[in-house]
């Protein structure tokens, strides 16, 4: 996990200070991260529907969705978050500029998301109560960033 965090921080830092990306031209990166969040959300939606008893619990489906989530959470997505791609600087995003001022917090939460997703991938197939218990850590890591760094969309 430490290696993951260091790599991501280095990657993001390199992008922040390289000046390689022209300001205001971040459509690809914004599309990329929104699609990435969509993948996380798609799998969380399946898990949440079962955890909230909106649909019947299915161990195989829960395991598959949780494994997908863990794989996605382990991705190095640093290049999707270049400096200057915040909502005050460009269109099409609700990411607050604060996100880039507080990158260590973001990296901590990404680390938490990876850790809790791995645990969920191990336990989601062990029954509804295991799934429900495992959702909390994943959700908390998502909410911590959404609370501080995402505007408008509720």
């Amino acid at each position: 996990m430490i290696k993951f965090k260091k790599t991501a921080i280095l990657c993001v830092s390199a992008l922040m200070f390289s000046g390689a990306i022209a300001a205001g031209d971040f459509d690809k990166e914004i599309d990329g991260r929104q699609s990435y969040m969509g993948v996380l959300g798609y799998n969380m939606g399946i898990l949440g529907a079962m955890a909230g008893e909106k649909m019947p619990y299915d161990a195989d489906l829960a395991s598959a969705a949780a494994r997908n989530l863990a794989l996605a959470a382990a991705m190095n997505n640093g290049s999707m978050w270049p400096q200057g791609s915040d909502m005050d600087s460009t269109e099409g995003t609700w990411a607050k500029a604060d996100l880039w001022q507080n990158f260590p917090i973001v990296m901590d939460q990404l680390g938490n998301l990876k850790t809790y997703s791995e645990a969920l991938a191990t336990n989601a197939g062990n029954g509804l109560s295991s799934l429900q218990a495992g959702m909390k850590g994943v959700g908390d890591s998502c909410k911590e960033c959404h609370k501080r760094f995402r505007a408008k969309k509720n």
Partner: peptide
């Protein structure tokens, strides 16, 4: 109970509180 929306997204801003 958990702050999750039906599409798998989680709430943000003050709705988290």
């Amino acid at each position: 109970a958990e702050g999750m929306l039906p599409n798998g997204d989680y709430v943000g801003g003050t709705m988290v509180e």
